[in-house]
């Protein structure tokens, strides 16, 4: 029995009169790959935004690693070890791939203005370490040869990988991926799957929002299904696939959607 990493308690969020999330509770265990699926508009990204501090939930709270995530600003969420990618990739387009990852090290490095201006030994050592770590991560996600390309000039699949590498640079305990396979072909998706499994194997817990049901069912240890802002099911993939409510809400129409 592995320990609990994230506990969401009764999360609620509404915009105007629309409830985007209603009383969503779920638990993610350390070391698992946890899938969050549901039809468009089911509240998956809203859940991400609440978890990573972009939104403040109206109700409920998150417990992370045994501690309450209170006053959760985005940079604080990252500080505590929750990193994310975005559904519509948000890289720093005019910075090189390497620089994107180097910025990702911001959180775990310390040099300030004085260090930058004086370039003392410690700052220089830190800069070297940042660059080295960036190159390691570029290689890790398989785009080492793109290090000096501007992020916006990278092919789509590489941009997805770069965004994952940038998130990993913050040394997360929980990596939240928002539709990483969107727009990828079958080969790229297969490679992505290997990458995500590798990340988990190296000790990072993964929370995955994905439309590609095959990927989710093959990759995830457990899956939760959201529909109209409510969690209608949470279990291992084989059980979720057979759940009548899920089939009706989501899988029924088109299993590949």
């Amino acid at each position: 029995m592995s320990s609990t990493l994230l506990e969401a308690h009764h999360i609620g969020k509404h915009f105007g009169g629309v409830s985007a999330l209603r009383d969503v509770s779920l638990t993610i265990r350390t070391g698992e790959i946890y899938g969050l699926i549901g039809p468009n508009g089911a509240g998956k990204t809203t859940f991400f935004n609440c978890l990573t501090g972009l939104y403040v939930p109206d109700r409920g709270d998150f417990g992370f690693d045994g501690q309450l995530l209170a006053a959760n600003a985005p940079h604080q969420a990252a500080q505590r070890g929750i990193a994310r990618t975005f559904q519509n990739i948000r890289l720093f387009g005019n910075m090189s791939a390497r620089e994107n990852i180097m910025v990702g090290r911001h959180l775990r490095t310390r040099a300030g203005v004085l260090g930058a201006v004086l370039r003392d030994t410690r700052t220089r050592a830190e800069e070297t370490a940042i660059a080295r770590r960036a190159d390691e991560l570029l290689a890790y996600v398989g785009i080492a040869d793109r290090a000096d390309h501007l992020a916006k000039h990278l092919p789509y699949g590489d941009q997805r990988r770069l965004e994952i590498a940038r998130a990993l640079a913050t040394e997360p305990r929980l990596l939240c991926l928002d539709e990483p396979a969107a727009g990828m072909n079958a080969t790229e998706t297969a490679e992505l799957r290997v990458l995500i499994e590798g990340i988990r194997a190296d000790g990072t817990t993964v929370l995955l929002i994905e439309h590609d049901v095959k990927l989710v069912m093959g990759l995830c240890d457990r899956v939760a299904v959201l529909d109209y802002g409510e969690k209608i099911c949470e279990d291992i993939p084989s059980v979720v696939q057979k759940d009548p409510a899920v089939i009706e809400a989501y899988l029924g129409g088109s299993p590949d959607a």
């Binding site: 990573t52 501090g53 990252a78 990193a83 948000r90 720093f92 387009g93 910075m95 911001h106 959180l107």
Partner: peptide, 13 residues
């Protein structure tokens, strides 16, 4: 470049 992304990787903007 992108303030939201900067926040998300832990920069106290």
């Amino acid at each position: 470049e992108d303030e939201v992304a900067a926040k998300a990787i832990g920069i106290n903007t």
